[in-house]
Write a protein that binds this DNA or RNA. Structure first.
Lengths: 220, 220
DNA sequence: CCAAACATCACGCAAACGCGTGATACCCTG
DNA sequence: CAGGGTATCACGCGTTTGCGTGATGTTTGG
């Protein structure tokens, strides 16, 4: 790739990855129409975009379809963030792809636009993403929040006593019963008793399972 | 509390919890100004709001300051979501409280408005939240996404071999070396060797620590 | 081609663990 | 006041672990 003919130092370079030509061109028009933004690269696949990315000219921001043939928008975003960490990637999604939001977040996407987004929403999103924000449709935001609170609210009701939680914590920290006895100022046998009760309540029968359950269900 | 004088079956009941009287009243005006919404309860603290919540009249949606004296907006939101799970809670925040966003999410908040939000943003947020969305300022959204990807992208480079990962998985699942040997069709001693290598690479010296590290750093 | 990494197997031993089976003492609630 | 939950302590036994110290065979890359 040579210097893009339409490159301009004052404008932000926007790259667009989208396999549907019609849609891609309509988005490009919107971008070029927005003052301060220029679509200096448009690709039908991430494979092509990544080839070009090795060159000198890099985008300030990327808009990418999430469901692409070949390398998906998610994989592409992950690659792009490795090569140019500074450039935010905004995913273009349709409602049905809500389940991919999680993966996209892990890939480091910085925002989510619905494909039905209006011109105003798109230019607003470009601005927000470049200002350190993450533009996001409220329905997608809800999905994200739900995932988050699910991850952190596993309603645990194992009725562990205070002492038992204390012992469990030490188990997770890898202490032996002897060490715990010393630490807590009680007998080895008492620690042993607590451990048994913990195993019973958590319905496990070895340290590994107890530790796994404790961490996974945030019991400590 | 008796029947709110201004209650109207057609309108959505909005409750407002905010300790600053001036700000509270200005928000109330905005709410009442919005067609379809009525501020039927305004409180200077969650304690007062929760008293009233025991009554018959419940809000359709709640707007709450995040930093309140006494019971915080986060604790309040958690209580409210237990009593009336259907009513979304939108948190009102200032920029400095970004660190509380995480706790608020866990408490089940459904949206985040900056205190500097405009009238349009507020009424838009009410609509979005009641439509199953989560209105959110892009900067807060970015915070959320960053937390998410941090939680799921701990760059682990312990160089575990395939076999070692396999054994580690079984350790986390609570299997004994003997059981693993059977499962993998190899000798007990070989399993033992793998375990030693894993311990060395993870820099631990007991099962508990290995399990904890494996789960916390998503090695499996 | 040879060293390095990997996967495999082996023995022994002290320490730690899991569990069965007890006991004593302190609360608090019905 | 009796009974249940909690915390404490005790002994024994078979199993499992962690580790020192070896060995052999295969694959891979400089």
């Amino acid at each position: 790739m040579t210097v893009p003919a339409n490159h301009n130092d004052q404008d932000k370079d926007v790259w667009l990855i989208e396999d549907n030509t019609t849609y891609r061109e309509s988005i490009e028009l919107i971008i070029d129409n927005a003052p301060g933004y220029l679509c200096t690269g448009q690709f039908s696949s991430w494979e092509k975009a990544l080839e070009t990315l090795t060159g000198v000219y890099q985008p300030d921001i990327i808009l990418s379809d999430i469901g692409l043939p070949g390398m998906s928008g998610i994989e592409g975003a992950a690659c792009a963030r490795k090569k140019i960490p500074g450039a935010p990637v905004i995913m273009l999604t349709v409602h049905d792809e809500d389940d991919k939001v999680f993966d996209a977040i892990c890939a480091g996407a910085s925002g989510y636009l619905l494909k039905s987004a209006t011109e105003v929403e798109i230019t607003e999103a470009l601005y927000q993403a470049l200002s350190g924000g993450s533009p996001m449709n409220p329905h997608i935001a809800r999905k994200v929040l739900e995932m988050f609170s699910e991850m952190n609210n596993p309603d645990q009701q194992y009725d562990l006593t205070g002492r038992e939680k204390e012992v469990l914590t030490h188990i997770v920290n890898g202490m032996t019963k002897k060490a715990m006895a010393l630490e807590l100022g009680i007998s080895f046998h008492t620690v042993d008793a607590h451990v048994r009760h913990i195993y019973e309540k958590l319905q496990v029968n070895c340290r590994s399972d107890a530790v796994a359950k404790a961490i996974r269900e945030k019991l400590i």
